[in-house]
Structures are given as structure tokens and as C-alpha cells.
Amino acid sequence: MSNHIRLLSDIHSDEQVEIYSIEGEGPTQHRVIEMGCTPGTPIRLIQKQAFGGPIIAMIRDAKIAIRKSDAQLIKVCS
């Protein structure tokens, strides 16, 4: 695992990374974790919507849509 830590909102399409941490505490963070975004989990960005719309990612065989500002709560590392 490299130390290169980025935000989920900043990675490229089709890039496979690993969740490093979820920043802060709140309903959004809890929902994300309940959906399986726990640290150490591989996550792959599938698509980014136009005009800064939600990003579509694949985690634990499931597809999720996350608003870009909410994806900034998720730190990932490659």
C-alpha cells in the first residue's frame, strides 16, 4: 500500500483503489459504511457523471452512486 492518499472524488474512471478512511461522523458517513465502504475495501470508479454529477462506483459486487461532495468524505489509496 502506497502512502498516496486521495479523495474518492478525485480518482479516474476505471481506477481501482482501496478505501483508506471515512472522514468525520454523520448520517452520510454511516450510510456509506453500512453499504460496505469500510477501510481496506477495494473500490473501483466506474463512471463520473457530466457537470460534476454523482460518481458511480463498484464496491463489494454492488454499484453505488455518490454525490461528488459526499465522495470527498472518502479517502482512498492506491
Partner: peptide
Amino acid sequence: KSEGFVMAL
């Protein structure tokens, strides 16, 4: 607006 937009597809 406490919870953002996170949705399972």
C-alpha cells in the same frame, strides 16, 4: 440536509 446522496444501484 444532514444526509448527502448515497444510493445503491
